[in-house]
């Protein structure tokens, strides 16, 4: 008996080559012949990339703070927690950017992926896109996906130079990495939300209730 795989592929091939078939002519290996490949229709904007990114980020109900240097991240985090009435407790991703920061004593720092005590998480974005105000986070040794979804509040460090215009640019940039694609490549646009009760938008469905970007030079 032939396998389901062979049967399906045989039927598909027959459908494409058969009497009514029409098999495409583009290269099967992903190269494709869009006539308008040069410029796919996508949002356009005037003004700076950064402005567009921040504008879209806020439109997605996320917030941000500009931080002058990486070293100033800890105080910014402490202020953010205090301003929002959050307990001084932080889960820090094992990211090289965050390893040598000096955290103030009053802040309880934890690591790992234990869901217990995961109120506020700090991770690092691999890229961002101005098109939609989206953060890009790749899972990996320095970036556990768990943190980005189980935390109640999500803080993300983003380097200004990592902001790219479009998703196509994100692909071009990430493809250069040796470990691409990661297991989980997350495009995150604002905090978690649902409109499943009477089509009314409510933030904080299953993932973070808030998303805050720390923008570093």
């Amino acid at each position: 008996m032939s396998s389901a795989r062979d049967n399906i592929l045989r039927r598909v091939a027959a459908a494409l080559d058969g009497r009514n078939g029409n098999r495409g002519t583009g290269s099967p290996s992903g190269g494709h012949d869009h006539p308008s490949d040069a410029s796919p229709p996508r949002p356009q904007w005037e003004g700076a990339l950064l402005d567009r990114f921040l504008d879209r980020l806020q439109a997605a109900s996320a917030s941000w703070t500009g931080v002058d240097t990486l070293d100033a991240v800890p105080t910014t985090v402490v202020d953010y927690l205090a301003d929002n009435g959050l307990a001084p407790r932080l889960r820090v991703a094992p990211h090289r950017l965050l390893q040598n920061l000096s955290w103030p004593d009053q802040l309880e720092i934890t690591t790992g992926t234990d869901p217990q005590g995961l109120d506020v998480a700090l991770s690092v974005a691999d890229a961002a896109m101005a098109e939609t105000g989206t953060l890009v986070l790749c899972s990996g040794p320095e970036s556990p996906t768990t943190l980005d979804f189980l935390a109640d509040h999500h803080l993300v460090v983003l380097r200004r130079e990592h902001i790219l215009p479009y998703m196509e640019d994100v692909w071009a940039s990430l493809r250069r990495r040796p470990d691409f694609p990661p297991r989980s490549l997350n495009y995150i646009t604002g905090p978690s939300r649902t409109a499943d009760v009477e089509q009314t938008m409510q933030l904080g469905a299953h993932g973070p209730r808030s998303l805050h970007v720390l923008l570093i030079p």
Binding site: S139, P144, T146, P181, S184, Y187, I188, G207
Partner: peptide, 17 residues
């Protein structure tokens, strides 16, 4: 809000998945 590209299972050095 969330658009995710999932490729395979947890890698050897991944902390989760």
């Amino acid at each position: 809000c969330y658009t995710t590209f999932v490729t395979g299972p947890r890698r050897a050095d991944d902390p989760d998945g």
